[in-house]
């Protein structure tokens, strides 16, 4: 169980990139955090891993199975990373070191947390790759990252993330830069994660729909909506969520609200973060709305206050 409570993050004296994020990922949950680039979702993931640069200032609390991670010593964190929390990077980047074979990088992860011989680790690695639908695991172990396709690399990275047996998987835009067919393969790999708890940050709505059981939407550093995946995709509550789902290509090629203008002097403003773009805005939106409960779901919009 990962509990994130009132977490705010800023770099130096810049405006907050994440403000007051509060949510819990229960064991077995598959939570997708949706938001556009720059909405602060990736930063939140790195904060949970303790991998933000020194210039980041974090307040609040991030607890893994009741244990506080913020302010934890580097040594303790490195015991948790890989072993209890798996990290899966973006699909487009080079998450695999170009100079080492796939097998070597997988073994490195396995042997870091469970001492065993290289041979044993290699067998495990091959089996693990095969369990993710990658054929010829042993051959794959001998190849270098540049010899694999983008979709294969990403599936290798997913396997590598959980190689040391982590039960909580943090994925950072795992489909970024992949085409539709490759994304389907990655979706398949995520389904093979089984009972593991998943926290996946993405701006790919279809991917989020395919893999998640719960959804959180972030906009301009804030959480603006959360709820179970099915009802969210059937009927989004927040005007931003609605606009986002309407903009999917299957609803025709139009962005009915235009593109996001940069939000200026955020710290000085007290209105709703979505005020400038909202089609439903009214006088009371000049005051920032709190998270309001709508049944089992939550949304940050005054429209649901009554």
């Amino acid at each position: 169980m990962l509990e994130i409570e009132e977490v705010s993050i800023r770099f130096g004296h810049n405006p907050e990139v994440v403000s007051d994020a509060t949510f819990t990922v229960n064991d077995g949950d598959r939570l997708a955090v949706i938001g556009e680039t720059g909405s602060g979702k990736s930063v939140l993931l790195l904060a949970a891993l303790g991998l933000l640069p020194a210039s980041a200032r974090i307040t609040g609390s991030i607890r893994l199975n009741g244990r506080e991670l913020l302010g934890c010593r580097e040594r303790e964190l490195s015991q948790i990373r890989g072993k209890e929390i798996a990290y899966i990077p973006q699909g487009s980047g080079n998450g695999l070191n170009p100079l080492y074979t796939v097998g070597r990088q997988l073994c490195e992860t396995i042997r870091k947390h469970r001492p065993c011989t290289r041979k044993e680790a290699l067998l495990q690695a091959a089996a693990l790759l095969e369990s993710f639908g990658l054929e010829h695991g042993e051959d794959l172990c001998r190849s270098y990252p540049f010899q694999l396709s983008g979709g294969m690399r990403q599936r290798v990275l997913i396997a590598m993330g959980i190689a040391a047996g982590a039960e909580l998987v943090l994925a950072d835009e795992p489909t970024k830069g992949l085409d539709r067919r490759r994304i389907t393969l990655v979706e398949d790999a995520f389904h093979r994660l089984g009972e593991r708890t998943l926290l996946c940050v993405t701006h790919d709505l279809r991917f989020a729909k395919a893999i998640s059981s719960r959804v959180i939407v972030m906009y301009a550093s804030q959480q603006i909506e959360s709820g179970d995946s099915r009802s969210f995709f059937e009927e989004p509550l927040h005007p931003y969520s609605r606009a986002m789902l309407e903009a999917l290509p299957e609803h025709g090629l139009h962005a009915n609200m235009g593109f996001a203008p940069p939000r200026q002097d955020q710290d000085a403003r007290s209105d709703c973060h979505f005020y400038d773009r909202c089609p439903w805005r009214s006088e009371r939106c000049r005051n920032a709305p709190p998270m309001l409960a709508v049944g089992e779901r939550k949304v940050r919009c005054w429209k649901y206050a009554d």
Partner: peptide
Amino acid sequence: EYITVAQGKG
């Protein structure tokens, strides 16, 4: 990215 991944491995 692979540096972050390596740190993520512990």
